[in-house]
């Protein structure tokens, strides 16, 4: 045993430790600062991504076929429910079209260009999820070549799920809103209430025990009702306005009793994401 921590070994172990932590800290800060990872890393990730799809696609396919058998079981009751919704949807769609058209005309009249409500979308499939307790991260099969850029918001099931944190040529990484790390997604969101008052704020955290997004430090005195829909506010200029986040589930006070803390149940289920939509704000270009 006395040989184990001989001088030379100890020095080597210390050097390896220092190099490791240096690399980790370096790659985290590099990732937060730069738009794309270094070229070698990008190249490696693209190649690994191709190899990964050879494993991921069959597994995904197996799962979809199993779940479609499952779906078949409750098709009948679902179908009845959906039919009712479709009739309502048609009306909403027509109204939506009319409003969008009117909006466009009004914007032209005001000589207003694209605003934060205009956005284009890119659809991608999920290849894998990071097998870690500490990072809630997905890898999707679209990258730079499909026009994806860092920090774009990602949606699934009609609700916001996270943002792009790393872009390679043919794949990219998505950090979910359920990730609790210190530098994670801080989306600007807003809640409207009956009296046309709007409460603006940012996502400040995530409560894993109850699956709730937290919007902290709300100093506004406006009354917020449970069940109100929460959308992105478009402030900051990267995330488009009007992406659906979820519904208010409860309202509490912060630790000092000064500001309000709003808890939001996300619209999307973070554990059941197969296809994602990346939204690109049109006014950026």
């Amino acid at each position: 045993m006395h040989k184990f921590f001989s001088n030379r070994r100890l020095v080597i172990i210390v050097i390896i430790l220092v190099v490791c932590f240096g690399l980790m800290a370096g790659s985290i800060s590099l990732r937060n600062r730069r738009n794309t990872p270094p070229l070698i890393q990008q190249f490696g990730n693209d190649i690994v991504g191709f190899a990964d799809s050879a494993v991921a696609l069959p597994v995904n396919w197996l799962q979809t076929s199993f779940s479609s058998v499952n779906d078949l079981m409750n098709t009948y009751s679902e179908n009845r429910e959906l039919k009712q919704q479709v009739t309502e949807l048609a009306q909403t769609k027509v109204r939506d079209q009319t409003l969008a058209h009117e909006n466009k005309q009004l914007k032209q009249e005001l000589k207003l260009g694209k605003s934060m409500t205009d956005y284009d979308t890119v659809t991608a499939a999920v290849l894998m999820r990071t097998p870690s307790s500490w990072q809630q991260q997905l890898v999707i099969n679209k990258g730079q070549s499909s026009g994806i850029k860092k920090n774009m918001p990602v949606m699934s099931d009609g609700g916001l799920i996270g943002r792009i944190i790393e872009v390679n040529k043919t794949n990219s990484k998505v950090e979910l809103l359920s990730d609790t790390n210190e530098a994670s997604s801080r989306f600007a969101i807003s809640i409207g209430n009956k009296g046309d008052q709007v409460v603006n704020g940012i996502v400040t955290g995530y409560n894993a025990n109850r699956n709730e997004i937290i919007m902290g430090q709300v100093s506004s005195k406006a009354k917020i009702k449970v069940g109100t829909k929460v959308i992105t506010s478009g402030m900051g200029g990267i995330t488009p306005k009007g992406l659906y986040v979820g519904k208010v589930s409860r309202i509490g006070k912060d630790d000092y009793g000064l500001a309000q803390k709003v808890y939001i149940t996300p619209a999307a289920n973070f554990n059941d994401i197969n296809i994602v939509t990346v939204a690109e704000s049109a006014s950026q270009e």
Partner: peptide
């Protein structure tokens, strides 16, 4: 290695059930 990622994705409701 790839199966780790693929299974974590497919069985996420089981692997990442809160908390």
């Amino acid at each position: 290695l790839f199966l780790d990622g693929a299974l974590s994705h497919v069985w996420a409701p089981l692997f990442f059930r809160y908390p």
